[in-house]
Design a binder for these strands. Structure first.
Ligand SMILES: [Mn+2]
Ligand SMILES: [Mn+2]
Ligand SMILES: [Zn+2]
Ligand SMILES: [Zn+2]
Lengths: 137, 137
DNA sequence: TCTTATATTGTAATTGTTACAACTTGGAGC
DNA sequence: GCTCCAAGTTGTAACAATTACAATATAAGA
């Protein structure tokens, strides 16, 4: 059963395996649209009508903190967005349709931070513009 | 008089030259620390004690919209930050001291978006980690 | 100086996030 | 399985960032 994937992700980080965490992980895995917390909450509420929004915040926090998922903010949005994909990639945000595209690319941090002395853990690259689809209209 | 620089920036975009806009521009030019709106408001209130926070939002909005200044959000902060510098560069955010460093680098958008069909206007690169100074402690 | 489009203001509403304390539950050890 | 406790969940309330809006004031062109 595929749920085992998520169970392992959690166990590897010594996180308790709860129904909420499993369902949120599954949702994020199947929906790679970079949903906001509100969107995660809307979805999860259908499965667990009595779930608290605080639980969504808590679950997401623990997943981010343990690097099981990624998070990002965009200039034009006031809320945190999350991404099941943790491997390095960029994002393209369309100002017309709002869609957030994955862009397969990565930074050469070594080169960029050359002799600057800073130690990087992570990064986000957000590109803003008009997407292919919207350009065709 | 140096204020002329800011007056021209505004006139070139057909924006009215107001004391508030001038003072906010001067503040951002002299303080390249990527302040949040709250920080801009705190400062400007000393010069214009009766200024409304809404004016700060309006001024900043108009400056961003007209590409006179830049704006960005960081995953660990809930508020918009602004930057007088509009030329392309990256940012490094220290998780210890919170300082936001400018990193002199740029993306090769052509290469990154190759045949993807999207049209980019702008981008933000945020790198997270521990800065030089904090590493020395 | 007059006029008008634009900017400012204050207030209130909305939205996103955090704090906290009481209650519940997963899973380790028996 | 049963017991126990650390970790997770819940609800509520506070707080913070942002937006909406309508009334008033002002910059700048005629
Ligand atoms: Mn992604
Ligand atoms: Mn900068
Ligand atoms: Zn689009
Ligand atoms: Zn630091």
């Amino acid at each position: 059963m595929e749920l085992n994937i998520y169970i392992e992700l959690l166990k590897n980080k010594n996180l308790k395996v709860t129904q909420h965490r499993l369902e949120i992980l599954r949702f994020l895995d199947k929906n790679r649209t970079h949903p906001s917390l509100e969107q995660v909450y809307s979805y999860i509420k259908e499965k667990f009508p009595s779930i608290s929004k605080m639980t969504v915040y808590n679950v997401i926090d623990s997943l981010i903190e343990n690097k099981i998922i990624n998070s990002m903010r965009f200039v034009n949005s006031t809320e945190l967005h999350v991404d099941f994909e943790i491997d390095t990639h960029f994002h393209f945000v369309c100002s017309k349709c709002g869609h957030i595209y994955d862009i397969d690319s990565e930074l050469d941090l070594e080169k960029i931070l050359k002799n600057g002395g800073h130690k990087a853990d992570d990064y986000n690259v957000n590109i803003y513009g008009v997407c292919k689809k919207c350009l065709k209209k």
